[in-house]
Design a binder for these strands. Structure first.
Lengths: 112, 112
DNA sequence: CCCGTATATTCCTTGACGCGTATATACGTG
DNA sequence: CACGTATATACGCGTCAAGGAATATACGGG
């Protein structure tokens, strides 16, 4: 899914997921815990909900949000084929430690 | 890292990573394979590079891009604590299949 | 040194996003 | 039904990212 990844692009939303991973929370608890305003929190929760990353359970006036593990599993599913790459790399490091003369310690990725 | 996640928010860039996972590619090959224009491809590659998700190797005029497995591993590291959640869920399904009366089959996430 | 190939960058416009403020809706209580 | 609590939404604004077209840079060959 596309909205799933764009939902994770925002660090605030990842922080919310980190909290929700510990326990399901009402909106007000997230507001207290993270310090965002209530409308902002609700709007981020809406994005997470549309992305399928969280689900809601209504409990009187309160909305209890919790992680939707299945959607998180989809993220993991996309990541899974890449996992083989760093396993190979770790394996390679074990075999011939300095074959690439530590060239990976050069920072060539943030040359801006 | 923050730029790492925002880089993945774009489906084009995820597609590029999917290609690069199979084999390292020059820019031109990515252009052919994915059908984006050359400037667009270069710009997306720049984002991926700044995010640390790919690295470049210069080879005459061509720039060979490849996955940076270490940064992908960081994504996996963030995802890891959540993995426990769906393992628990799968485990729970195994033990008492319909304890939550299949409530997770209701789509309450895309109510927009 | 000029040229062709390969790639990066700039400029510009447009659309999406996040925040804050204000307001609307839902729910329980007296 | 008026009220307070809890949450969601609408609006206006500033910022930012993406795409297209044009241009600039790097490299190798004759």
């Amino acid at each position: 899914m596309d909205s799933t990844w764009s939902a994770l692009a925002d660090p605030h939303r990842r922080a919310m997921l980190d909290v929700l991973r510990e326990r399901a929370c009402a909106v007000g608890e997230l507001v207290e815990e993270l310090g965002f305003t209530q409308p902002t929190t609700s709007k981020h929760l809406r994005v997470l909900r549309k992305a399928g990353l969280v689900r809601v359970r209504t409990e009187a006036q309160r909305r209890i949000y919790s992680i939707n593990a299945e959607q998180m599993a989809e993220l993991d599913a996309w990541l899974a084929p890449f996992r083989q790459l760093w396993n190979e790399r770790l394996d390679a490091l074990g075999h011939h430690l300095d074959k690439d003369e530590h060239s990976h310690s050069r920072k060539q990725t943030d040359e801006d």
